[in-house]
Design a protein around this nucleic acid. Structure first.
Length: 427
RNA sequence: GGGGGAAUGUCCCGAGCGGCAAAGGGGGCGGACUGUAAAUCCGCUGGCGUACGCCUUCGUAGGUUCGAGUCCUACUUCCCCCA
C-alpha cells in the first residue's frame, strides 16, 4: 500500500531492502544498487548511533530502533552505538540551542537505562547475526587533539560543513553554534570509519535529519581507507494531523515501563488516528503485511479493531506479550464493559491519606494534573470524574463510597484508586 | 574597527505609549459531538492559597523611578550596513 520509495527502475533483490521498502522505512539512500548487492553478498552489518541524553527513549526514537530490528530479521547484524563520547559534545542537528552538557555520571546512568530497551527489541549475543552494543567513548576519548586534527581534519572543508542542514538551521535561525558542536559531525564520521574497521560495518542508518552526518562518514571511509560504505535514512514520521510522533506538551511517550506504564503505552497506540493505522502497523509491529492489509481495509468504526491489534502488538514488542494482553484486557473491561479492572494503573491510598483530601489533591496524586492550579482548572472544565460522576467542586473533600473507584480524566484517561483501611482492622 | 537593529510567557512563532501575569496564532489539555479517531464549535494553557491575596517570569548584571518587558549603563549572542 505504501508508495514505492525506490528510484524508477530499481527493484530491490535483497531481503533487507525489500523488507524496509515495503514497510515504509526508506527515505533516502546513497546508493540503492550498491547496498542491495552488498546485502545479498553476505551478512550485512549496519549501525545506528544513539545519544545518551535521557534515561529513556520515546516513541519518536522507536522508528530507527525498529530499523535495526528489521535488519536482524533480514539476516543482518545490527550494531548499536551508544554515544557515550558524542553525547559529551552534543548533536546540533535539529536543535535551536546548545544542549546543556551532561556529566559523565549522567551519561553512564543513561546508557545503563537505555540498554534495557534495546535488549527488548534486538537479540544480542555472539552469533553472526546477533546484535552488539558499543560505546563510542572507547575510541573517541583516546585521541589526542592534534592527532585527531591531523588524522581527520584534512578530509573536511569548512565550506562543505557550512552547507549541512544541521549547521545551516542554526545559522539561519540566528542561534549560536559553538565550535564544540561544530565538531560533532566529525566525530560521527569517525565512528563510522572505526566501525567499518572493527566490524566490517558498511551501512549507517538514521533519521532523515542525520543524512548529512552519515554521508560525511561514507566520505571519510572512502578517502581514508578507499572503501565503499552506504547511507540510508528513514522518513520523519508524523501523524496524519501533522503532529510529531511521541512528544506532547504533557510529556513524551516514554519507552521505559517505569516512566510510562504498559497500560498507558497501549493507550497511546489505541488512540492512533484512523488514517495512520496501516502505516503504524507496518512500522511498529511485526504483523505480516497481508494481515495488515486486511486490517487497514476496515471501514468506519471497525478500524477500532485494527487499533487494538496495533496497540497490543506494539506493546508486546516492548513490554512482552503478557503485559500487552493485561493492558488490552484492562482497556476492554474499562471501556467496553464499564467495569473496574486491576489492570488499570492503580493509586493506593490509606484511609488516613484520603481523609480530608480534596478533589484537587486527588487529581494531582493520580497524575492527572501537574499542579493544584492545573487540577482546579481541569475540574472547572468538567474533566474529572469519579466512578463516572462528574466532579464540580475542586475544593470539596473526596467522596468515595467503596474501597475502590475509577478515576477518569477526559474521555479516555483512567486510573483505579484503592483504599487501604488499616484503621478498620483494629476495632 | 565604526554605525544601525534584535533577543518576550523554559513547546514553537510572535505583539507589547513606564502600571503587565503580559495581545494574537500554532501546539497541548479539557467540554460538546463521536467510534477511546478525524473534522467542527467552545473553554483552559506560570506557582501557592477556599478567597479580595502572595510569589516567580520578558538574553545576563547593575542603575533611574512610587512603579520597568518597556528608560539608562555594561556584558553575552545574533542580524544588517560601512571599513
Amino acid at each position: 500500500m505504501s508508495s514505492n520509495p525506490f528510484p524508477p527502475g530499481f527493484t530491490p533483490r535483497s531481503d533487507f531492502l525489500r523488507l524496509l521498502g515495503e514497510r515504509g522505512y526508506i527515505h533516502q539512500c546513497s546508493d540503492f544498487e550498491g547496498l542491495d548487492a552488498a546485502a545479498r553478498a553476505g551478512v550485512l552489518t549496519a549501525y545506528i548511533g544513539f545519544d545518551a541524553t535521557a534515561p529513556s527513549y520515546h516513541v519518536g526514537n522507536l522508528l530507527v530502533i525498529m530499523m535495526l530490528r528489521r535488519l536482524q530479521q533480514a539476516g543482518g547484524k545490527p550494531i548499536v552505538v551508544m554515544g557515550g563520547g558524542t553525547t559529551k559534545v552534543g548533536d546540533p542537528s535539529g536543535k535551536d540551542e546548545t544542549r546543556r552538557l551532561l556529566t559523565e555520571g549522567d551519561i553512564a546512568a543513561n546508557i545503563a537505562s537505555l540498554s534495557e530497551t534495546f535488549a527488548k527489541l534486538l537479540r544480542f549475543g555472539d552469533a553472526p547475526t546477533d546484535a552488539v552494543m558499543v560505546d563510542n567513548d572507547a575510541w573517541l576519548s583516546s585521541f589526542g587533539y592534534v592527532e585527531f586534527l591531523r588524522a581527520f581534519g584534512p578530509h573536511f572543508t569548512i565550506n562543505r560543513m557550512l552547507t549541512f542542514d544541521s549547521v545551516k538551521l542554526r545559522l539561519d535561525r540566528e542561534q549560536p553554534l559553538t565550535f564544540l558542536e561544530f565538531n560533532y559531525m566529525l566525530m560521527q564520521a569517525v565512528d563510522f570509519l572505526e566501525l567499518n574497521r572493527r566490524f566490517g560495518c558498511i551501512l549507517q542508518m538514521g533519521g532523515s535529519d542525520q543524512w548529512g552526518n552519515i554521508v560525511n562518514g561514507v566520505e571519510l571511509i572512502r578517502r581514508v581507507d578507499q572503501k565503499g560504505a552506504f547511507a540510508l535514512t528513514a522518513p520523519l514520521i508524523a501523524t496524519s494531523s501533522g503532529a510529531k510522533m511521541g512528544k506532547t506538551a504533557a510529556g513524551a511517550v516514554w519507552l521505559n515501563a517505569e516512566m510510562r506504564t504498559p497500560y498507558d503505552y497501549w493507550q497511546f497506540w489505541r488512540n492512533t488516528e484512523d488514517a495512520d493505522v496501516g502505516r503504524f502497523l507496518r512500522l511498529y509491529t511485526d504483523m505480516p503485511l497481508d494481515e495488515i492489509a486486511r486490517l487497514e481495509a476496515l471501514a468506519g468504526a471497525e478500524v477500532n479493531e485494527a487499533k487494538k491489534v496495533l496497540a497490543t502488538e506494539a506493546t508486546a514488542l516492548l513490554h512482552g506479550r503478557e503485559a500487552a494482553e493485561t493492558a488490552a484486557a484492562a482497556a476492554r473491561a474499562a471501556f467496553e464493559e464499564g467495569r473496574l479492572s486491576g489492570g488499570l494503573p492503580t493509586l493506593t491510598l490509606s484511609a488516613a491519606q484520603l481523609n480530608g483530601m480534596s478533589n484537587t489533591a486527588l487529581m494531582v496524586a493520580a497524575g492527572f494534573a501537574n499542579s493544584n492550579g492545573d487540577a482546579r482548572r481541569q475540574i472547572a472544565g468538567g474533566a474529572f470524574r469519579i466512578d463516572g460522576v462528574k466532579i464540580s467542586d475542586a475544593n470539596a473533600p473526596v467522596a468515595l463510597t467503596g474501597i475502590e473507584a475509577e478515576l477518569r480524566k477526559g474521555n479516555s484517561r483512567k486510573r483505579l484508586v484503592i483504599i487501604d483501611e488499616p484503621e478498620s482492622k483494629a476495632p
